[in-house]
Design a protein around this nucleic acid. Sequence first.
RNA 1: GCGGCCGUAGCUCAGUCGGUUAGAGCACCUGGUUGUGGUCCAGGGGGUCGGGGGUUCGAGUCCCCUCGGUCGCCCCA
Length: 468
Amino acid sequence: MTPPSPQPGRNHQAPRGTRDFYPIEMARRLWLEDKWRRTATRHGFDEISGPTFEHLDLYTVKSGEGIVSELFSFTREGGETAYALRPEFTPTLARMVAAKANALPKPIKWHSIGPYFRAERPQRGRLREFTQWNVDIIGNYAYEADPQALSQLGVESDAEIIACCIDALRAFGLTSEMVRVRLSDRRVLDAFLSTHGVIDDQSAKVISLLDARAKIGEEDYKRALSEMNIAPDVALGIDRLIAAFVQPEIRPAGVYSSVDVALQPYLDPLAVLWNHLRDLDALEWCSMDFSIVRGLAYYTGTVFEVHETGGKERAIAGGGRYDNLVELFGGPPTPAVGFAMGDVVIALVLQDKGLMPSDDAIARDMGLAPDVFVIASEEAADVLLRPVLAHLRRAGLHARRSYKSTRNVGKLLGEASKANARYALILKPDGQAELKDMGVQGGEPRKLQSPSGAEAVAAWAAEHIPKA
RNA sequence: GCGGCCGUAGCUCAGUCGGUUAGAGCACCUGGUUGUGGUCCAGGGGGUCGGGGGUUCGAGUCCCCUCGGUCGCCCCA
């Protein structure tokens, strides 16, 4: 096998499904990540990070060999160990928690922002490399003391996770009219189906059928159910269950009789969850929707997805409860719940809704715009240029200059304007200077009257430039 | 992995029936020689027309392959 070698005159391209981030794209990404980070911090999550590749079997243990075709996996030249670029964070998280489970104070509230990789064919909203935000709450002291309390204590964390996710959506300027958090609980459907004799494989099939229902259409859905010998009254019961819970405002007590009393133990926690969501000012964003099941096998209870209301884009975020994953990776039995939000879909949705700020606005928001753009108006002022820049920068200001040869102050001010500079500092010979507020079109510059050295000019300018 | 559509300058696109040295706008660079901001004027750089092969006297244009983009299927952590 010949290693690929660069050929003269041939253009190299970024690999399929990856992106180059030029300054503007990078600023947008930083802006996005900043919203995530600030939201998580407000909600009390500590930021962590892990390796961007793991042992391959970290992923096959949980998801089976079938997952391998979706991964970028590799072995070192001459090595034996199989690795894979991480396709998700949860296994790493479970591993990290399992390794120090007894030493970490509970509950663990961690979040993480970083790149992930999936060997899929890129399409709208899905790339091969993307940035993802993971937010998780793991472990619960009370739960360890009393496993029976899981359903009650779990919803406290479930609600916090969902509320954090919603707060991030708020931070992006989205409203509850624009997006919907669709909530479900696998335990409810499982319980309903098993009380009607639908169990194991058949139950899983029904659930994945529900997942596909909107896509395949009502007729195919019903035909598939009857082919599985699912009784019509069971199908009807599923619909009534779904219908009864579309509006969170409907109190679960009111639907027990119309659905199935056997579901009560699983519906009670949902009622508590709703109350918590109301307390956390999150309820108006949420709808129950038992057709949400999530593809992953490791979810054990609550699952949710965030979708744009128009239904045009892929899920903005998704998550759920995974109470046995830490144990699977060698830790003690530990309840956990979390969600992930990727940069690709949220960016598409923000663009759809006109909520993506302009490049200039992002530069300002992120503090990337220069505080001051220094112009030497005449050759005699050149000697001041570098020392003044140095002093401004030492004073903590973001200071830039032109590299053009022109002395045309109008052009140089144009450059300052294009660079989004807040102020222009025009150096004159003999140490005089003018400071111009670029936010005021045609405004009179502030003038430094008495001649001074570079340090004094910079100090004078710094004094008159307000903090961004 | 499978299918539809699309590849001409950094971007958006013209380019006639196959016919000379491939064009425009925007962007970028320079200048408009003491000038105070997104306007204007002039000039400039930048393309082996995604790549390779074929048909032809001649290919940006027609055919095949390939690479890439995009949309969908599978999958979706």
